[in-house]
Every structure is written in C-alpha cells, then in structure tokens.
Amino acid sequence: MIDWGQLFSNAAVELISPTTAAYALAALGLAVHFGFTGLLNFGQAGFMALGAYGYAISTLTFNFPVWASVLVGIGASVVFALILGVPTLRLRADYLAIVTIAAAEILRLIFTTNTYIDVTGSANGLSGYKGGFAALNPLPEGTYGFAPFTNNSYDTWLRIVAWTIVILACLFVWLLMRSPWGRVVKGIREDEDAVRALGKNVFSYKMQSLIIGGVLGTVAGMIFILPRAVVPSNYQTTLTFFIYTILLLGGAATILGPVIGSIIFWVLLSFISGFIARAVEVGWLPFLSNVQAGQLRFVIVGVVLMLIVIYRPQGIFGNKKELAFVK
C-alpha cells in the first residue's frame, strides 16, 4: 500500500529546501527582467552557471575565501550582462531573447568541454568546495528542527542563509519597484519610445535591470550548488524554462509570486514524483516502467504550466485587473 504520510513529509521537506530558495531567487531575478522591465531573458540558466562555477572555481583553483568567491561570481555575471546587453538592448526585445538563450548554451558548452578539464571538471563537474561555507557555520554539531524538517548542522545553516538572502532580495526588489526607478522600468515595459520621449535614458535603465536580475540569478546559482555538486548538465535551457514556469505560476510582475511559485513547484514536483514511483511499485500503473515513471513528472509539470497560462495567466499573485487589457 502507499505510505501517504511518507509521501507528504517528503514533499513538505521541499517547502524550505535550499533548492527551493535558489529557484525562488532566480525567478525573482527573472521577475525584474521580464515582469517589471519587459526584457525577454531566456538565459537565466547561464547567470546561474556563472554563480556556480564562479564560486566553485575561485574556491578550488585559486583558494579564495568565501566572500571573494562570491564576488568573483557576481563580477562574472555583471560582465556577462554587459556583454549581452551592449549589442542587444538597443534592439527590439526579441533579439535579447535569441542572444541570451544562445549565450547561456555557449557558457554551458565551455564548462563542459574537455579543454579546460583541470579547471571546470568537464562533464563530471566540480565538488569539494563547501569547506569555506561550512567553516562559517556558527551552529554546533547536532540535529535541528522538528519532523519532517530535521537537518544536521550544515544543512540547517545553509537553509538559514539561503532564505535570509531570499527575504533580503525580496525587500530589495520591493523597494526598487515602488520607487521612481521602478516607475521608469515599468514604463519601459509598456513602451520604451514613450519613456525615451520623456527624457529617460532607456538603454541605461534596461542595462541596470539586466544586471540586477542577472546578479540575483547568480546568487541563486551559488545557493543551488551548496547542497550538491556542480554538474554542467544542470544548466541546460530546461532550467530557464522551469524558472519561467515558477515565475508565471506566481505572477510575473510580483515580488512574492516567484517565492510562492517556487515553493508550490517543488512541493508538487516532489509529491508527484513520489506518488508515481510508489504507484508503479504497487502496480497501479502497470503500463509504466520505473524509468518512464521518473520522466512522467515533467510531463505533468508541462501540462500544469499550460493550464496556468490558459486559465490563470496573471499567476497566483498577479493582478486580475491587468488582464482586462491584455491584447
């Protein structure tokens, strides 16, 4: 029989997992790009990869301390944003989409190629960079929390740091978007020529937005690798699309949307995959093998995304009023 208690507690673990936090942060960055400024960035996976590799390579190859590794990652993503933005932000929105999706793939292939295997670890990726972060842990050894959220000292420390960063980032984006700065970028989303005619340097604002959202994605990439290893195949375009799913689920031009969207996405994904696996075991789905069952959850995610876009295009937190005017 299916152990429902086990299924629910496994799903509940995802509520506060660092991976959920990382996706929430990456989605928040995308909200700055797409939801608020109207920049079609399809390369968020690239920004995340820069955070992951920037942190891991600085630590492993150059023996940098944690703060320096973080700065290297952020610096790399600012440079990446500049390289993407300078040629494309003067053009129409769709050009940025094409360039970002390609640039993210180029980055992933560079990290995968054997030429730099000493630095990047090629397809095997990198591991063993967690020492610096663990050394900062003020919590003594032991088990923390209550069922089902019991964790050891390192995992608890990671959760605290990850969610603190998410909360600070939400506060930061909220402050920005209610300011005149936010008004300008939202104006750019609606019609950049009109904003230009009012004397605003549209290119500069778009660049600032691209950098801010990209840096949020980069920090997300660092949180993402702290509970696991750096593996290049994690940074395929599907990662970007999962983040878009989360963003649309929560509401594109909202602050809390990406966070709640990420929580719902991961809890549901964990529950669905657990349920399918158990259901196959007890023979409820005789037409599926174990391997097929593992992939079915993504089919369900795809269907759910389609249903959201059709029946609730503004997302969970989006403003219903906005939709009255969508062309």
Binding site: R183, K186, G187, R189, E190, D191, D193, A194, V195, A197, E322, F325
Partner: peptide
C-alpha cells in the same frame, strides 16, 4: 507626442 498614441497601458 506620437501620431499613434503611446499611453503606458499598465501604469
């Protein structure tokens, strides 16, 4: 101003 009005619709 513009010939085709550019009101920022969702502001």
């Amino acid at each position: 101003t513009f010939q085709l009005t550019k009101a920022l619709a969702l502001l």
